[in-house]
Write a protein that binds this DNA or RNA. Structure first.
Lengths: 209, 209
DNA sequence: CCAAAAGTGTTAGGAGTACACCCATGG
DNA sequence: CCATGGGTGTACTCCTAACACTTTTGG
C-alpha cells in the first residue's frame, strides 16, 4: 500500500477590525489559482503534529503565538486540488483585536484582512471551509466563552456586545445581553474606566481562574 | 517537499444491543498491538474521498450500507502509530438495532461488539477516539434527531426512551420525555401495536418527509 | 387476580425576550 | 445645553423538571 496523499493544514484566522468580523487571506503567487486569495496554510511536516503545524503556520503568517486554535474538519474530496491528492485538516484561530497585525505576513506573499461579509472568490474549496468555520464560531459563541478570545485583555461591555453582534450579524438587546453575561460569572469588573467617548465605561477582564 | 504521512480512517460503529450502547471492535492479527482490540478502519486509497473510504470500511466490516456516518475529528500526533507517521480521520456510524450483524466481519479478523461501559484496553490512541465519539453522540442526541438512526423502522416510545437512557446513561422522566418528542413533530403514529409484553404499545415511525 | 409495562396533566421555577428612560461626559 | 453612548428593571412567555395514578394485557 503506497499512498500518494499529501496532508496540509489550512487556517481560518478571525479577528475583529473596523467593527467587522474579518479573516486573513493570502494571495497565491503560484499556480493553480495564481492571483486568487486563499486561506493561510501549508504542508504538515513529518516531525510535527497537526496542531503544531497549524501553530507554526499561524506564527509564520501572522507572527502571533498562544492564541485560540481549534480543529474544524478535514476535507479530502478527490479533485479539490488539481495538483494531486491533498487532504486538508482545517483549523480556525481567534486573534484578539489588539494583537492582529496590520499587514500580516513576514514573507513576500501578499496577505490581507477581509470582512466575512465581502470575501473575494477563493482558491480551491476554501469558501466551504470558511463557511464551515463561520457556522462553528457562531454556534460556539452561544454556549461557550470563545468570544472573549477576540477581545483585548481589558474591554467594556459594549465592546463585548459589538463583538457578538458582528459575529452573529444581528442586533442584541443591551439589557438582556448584560444579564446573560452577568449570569455566566466569568467577568471581573476592574477599577478602571474607559474615558474615551462620552460617559466613561467600566472596563472588565475575563476571569481566567 | 516529500511527506511520508499515511492517511487512514477509523470508525466508531455504534448500535444498541442487549439494552446497551455497544461499539464494534476488531482484534488485531498483526503487530503492533497484536491481539489487542482496535477500531475498524484502514488506509484511504488514492481514488476515494475520506467519506468514501469510511463507507467502504463500514461495508467490509459490517456489511451495512446507507447508514448514518459523520466525521468526528482528525488525530495526527507524532508516535500514535509506532510503524510511522499516520494521520487518522475518525468517523462515527450508527447502525439500527435490527440491522446490526450478530457476528460482524466477512474476513478472518475477529470482530466483536462491546458495551461502551466495559471496553477492553484498545490499541493505539483508539480509546481517545471512542471517548470523543461518545461525547459527540451524547451532545447531538440533545439537540438533533440522530438518535432515530439507531432504531428499527418501527418502534415504540419506550424503545426510544430506552435508547436515550442508555446513551446518556441516566434515567429520564417518561412524561417529560414524551412531551419533548411530541414537540419535535418528527414521529408518525402507526396503526399498529407491538403486542409483545403486557399492555400493547403503539408503534411509531420517523417522519422522513 | 396479579405482575408488568403503557399511557396520561399539572404545577413551579428558570430562561429568554420585549421594551424605555435617566445619567455622565466632552464639546 | 446638547449629542453620545453608558447604564438599569419589569412583565410575559415558554421550556424544563418534579411528581402518581389508571389501564391493558398475559399468565
Amino acid at each position: 500500500m503506497k499512498q500518494a496523499i499529501q496532508v496540509t493544514v489550512d487556517i481560518v484566522v478571525f479577528t475583529i477590525r473596523d467593527e467587522a468580523l474579518q479573516i486573513l487571506l493570502v494571495k497565491r503567487g503560484v499556480a493553480p489559482f495564481l492571483g486568487r486569495f486563499a486561506l493561510p496554510g501549508g504542508f504538515v511536516r513529518d516531525d510535527e503534529s497537526l496542531e503544531q503545524a497549524a501553530q507554526r503556520e499561524l506564527l509564520e503568517e501572522t507572527g502571533t503565538k498562544n492564541i485560540y486554535l481549534e480543529q474544524l474538519f478535514s476535507f479530502g474530496d478527490l479533485g479539490r486540488d488539481p495538483r494531486g491528492r491533498v487532504v486538508t485538516v482545517a483549523y480556525y484561530a481567534l486573534i484578539p483585536s489588539d494583537r492582529a497585525p496590520l499587514v500580516a505576513g513576514t514573507d513576500a506573499a501578499e496577505a490581507k484582512w477581509f470582512s466575512v461579509e465581502s470575501l473575494p472568490i477563493l482558491a480551491f474549496d476554501h469558501r466551504r471551509i470558511v463557511d464551515y468555520a463561520l457556522s462553528r464560531l457562531r454556534g460556539k459563541l452561544e454556549y461557550t466563552t470563545v468570544g472573549f478570545e477576540l477581545l483585548a485583555r481589558k474591554f467594556t461591555l459594549s465592546d463585548l456586545q459589538h463583538l457578538y453582534e458582528v459575529i452573529l450579524n444581528r442586533p442584541l438587546d443591551k439589557r438582556n445581553f448584560r444579564r446573560k453575561i452577568e449570569a455566566q460569572k466569568v467577568l471581573k469588573p476592574l477599577k478602571e474606566w474607559q474615558r474615551t467617548g462620552r460617559k466613561p465605561a467600566r472596563l472588565y477582564s475575563f476571569k481566567t481562574t
